[in-house]
Design a protein around this nucleic acid. Structure first.
Length: 269
DNA sequence: ATGGTGGTCCTACCA
């Protein structure tokens, strides 16, 4: 069987339920993980998703900000919502998928703090929070051996780690999302697995790859000043099951788009 | 070097 997983920072699930339906109808992932749902659990458009065949839904939301959710065609078990940095922010949710009887996969959906504008943890508490969040992720992955069995970690990690994950490496060295300090911390989260970078498996390091384009550019496609902020990481035990990926760049050009596009990974069992 | 847009929910805050 083939399992297709998708991750999308939707930037308000209620505002963009139409675009979400369009994406699900055309690409039919088995599981969709959302970030920045921006609504309380009771306001999540669960019935609209059930009508599209996504009967199994887990949400971790809050009013107005952040919020993550998983909607699936396959049943899942054990819903866990982990708090990070004792902030009470809705930035993580996990479920257990069973694509085969003898295969249990822990799926972790993350929305890492953006970190504000100033890349100095002493001057900017949001940047300090981002770094602390990443440190806590690395500790948790190491201590709980999260990637020691079948696991997937995906979502909006708000960091573009590689030089070719941004439109201009030198120009972005002091821009939050691509500063050396964040890239180093994210590297520790990656090594704590260790994980496999599913999207980069198919795109050489010499090639640019983006999943986000700012709303502020007059013409996002023409200027093409993107960043790869969204990621799908697999435990090494799933490496041989990875059979493909897709970044749906075209959705950035849809009407009233999210500033992020969906990313997908295919796994064969 | 600066300011540019878009989300939530009514006033600023966040991205």
């Amino acid at each position: 069987m083939r399992l297709t997983l998708a991750s999308w920072n939707i930037n308000s699930v209620r505002l963009r339920i139409g675009l979400l339906a369009k994406f699900l109808a055309s690409h039919a992932p088995d599981v969709i993980c959302l970030q920045e749902t921006k609504c309380r659990d009771g306001e999540f458009p669960a019935s609209a998703l059930r009508k599209l065949g996504y009967d199994h839904i887990a949400v971790n939301g809050q009013k107005g900000y952040h919020g993550v959710a998983v909607a699936s065609k396959l049943p899942f078990a054990t819903i866990e919502k982990r708090g990070f940095c004792d902030k009470g922010d809705a930035r993580h949710i996990s479920v257990i998928l069973r694509p085969l009887k003898d295969r249990e996969i822990a799926l972790h959906n993350f929305y890492v703090p953006a970190g504000g504008d100033e890349p100095d943890p002493d001057a900017n508490p949001k940047f300090a929070h981002k770094l602390a969040f990443l440190d806590e992720m690395a500790d948790w992955i190491r201590t709980d051996k999260i990637a020691g069995s079948d696991a997937i970690m995906l979502g909006d990690l708000n960091i573009a780690p590689l030089e070719t994950d941004v439109w201009n490496h030198k120009a972005l060295l002091k821009v939050v999302s691509h500063t050396p300090i964040e890239v180093e911390r994210l590297g520790k989260v990656f090594d704590a697995g260790p994980w496999v970078d599913a999207l980069r498996r198919y795109v050489p390091l010499s090639e640019k790859l983006y999943t986000w384009w700012s709303y502020r550019a007059p013409d996002w496609a023409k200027s093409n000043k993107g960043r790869r902020l969204d990621h799908i990481w697999l435990s090494e035990s799933l490496s041989s099951n990875l059979s493909g990926m897709k970044v749906l760049r075209e959705s950035r050009g849809w009407e009233r788009p999210s500033d992020h596009v969906p990313v997908m990974a295919h796994l064969d069992f």
